[in-house]
Design a protein around this nucleic acid. Sequence first.
DNA 1: CATTCACAATGACTTAAGTCATAAAAAGCA
DNA 2: TGCTTTTTATGACTTAAGTCATTGTGAATG
Lengths: 214, 214
Amino acid sequence: MTIHILLVEDQTIVRNGLKMILEQDEQLQVVAEASNGIEALSQLECHHVDLVLLDIRMPEMNGIEAAKHMKTKFPNLKIIILTTFDDDEYAYETLKDGANGFLLKSSEPEKLIGSVKSVMNGGLVIQEDIAAKLMPKLFKQSIRRERDDMDIPLTEREIAIVQLIGEGKTNKEIANSLFLSVGTVKNHITNILHELNLRDRTQIAIYAIRNELV
Amino acid sequence: MTIHILLVEDQTIVRNGLKMILEQDEQLQVVAEASNGIEALSQLECHHVDLVLLDIRMPEMNGIEAAKHMKTKFPNLKIIILTTFDDDEYAYETLKDGANGFLLKSSEPEKLIGSVKSVMNGGLVIQEDIAAKLMPKLFKQSIRRERDDMDIPLTEREIAIVQLIGEGKTNKEIANSLFLSVGTVKNHITNILHELNLRDRTQIAIYAIRNELV
DNA sequence: CATTCACAATGACTTAAGTCATAAAAAGCA
DNA sequence: TGCTTTTTATGACTTAAGTCATTGTGAATG
């Protein structure tokens, strides 16, 4: 089965070099090329592409932006990011947007081919040295989780109960402090679980804290 | 250049299957086999091995332990972990100990071969679905690193369970992902509750989040 | 005016959680 | 070496949690 590749790289010489390397393997076929993100997106419209080799540094639209748009439009598309050594600043952002691999441009030819196949088989390929640099960045990234004030699909009463669960109260305690019967509390909880798509009070407690209800 | 492989897997049939697959590629050669961690280590002493394919679930000494010992003795050795679907709990531990890849046993043969070569070329190969499960764990791990030794009066095992409760898992799920019986999980929880002076799993979940264990 | 929705309640169930006694292997330490 | 802690396991319990059907308010919305 042939793997159809879109090659996105602004430096023509490098691009040709990559093409040569890739097509040494008869399974791999470069069906389209582009020199920036915008071009790449329009190429995707008119060619069937399995995998994109994407340079990070590019004019017009850079690799990160491009990757994001691509994955939105073609979720099944595989994307391998090509980086030079000092691009790692940008690189980690693409992970969130679903890049399937990172490769140094200075890689051995076989590594490139191997990685393409590996990614097509569903793998995530990260070059060792990049991985080392990337990991700490990913960590930092995940700390700054911004919360958009999402609306909670619950009634007042239900929220009150969610909060008390989030404080670790039992049904009996909740019933007492809200002047309800335990049965009523249970009913509310059953409703909450359905509405929030959760399984038990523990998950409700987690929800409460994560949504800053407690 | 031939890649010398040590195959570690307790189920003989599976092991033979893997061997067959690997040796379809004439670059790959299985030079030794073992059915548990201890055997594997002694095999490493008497054969030149480039890469180890290591099952996580094994009698005597499991994959994690084995990987740790191997990397200590042979830092240049490449290790690919073979997992089933719900082993992810253990999987991330091996990353720290220097595993170079994770593969599902249910993988396609080509994926296996591709990954072996990819790893030998210095890559880190993680299967997509595992990667997805693994990443958030890695994030948490590193965030925690900052204020590392907080006074949590729990054993390693207990902390692992607290974390899983903090993710909203049931006892059954916890048991599965830690390879324990449900009864054992319950026992641990009873101990945790006493040690932390809490009442039920919901309060444990709250504790886990508040103490940034999750 | 009828209908929808939030809220409260009961009873009869099923099941996940948690307790407790007991046991035993493995790891670490004195 | 012997002692302690950690880890795992089982079985027999008790109880809190959660489901479901059904009933009934009052308030709001159309």
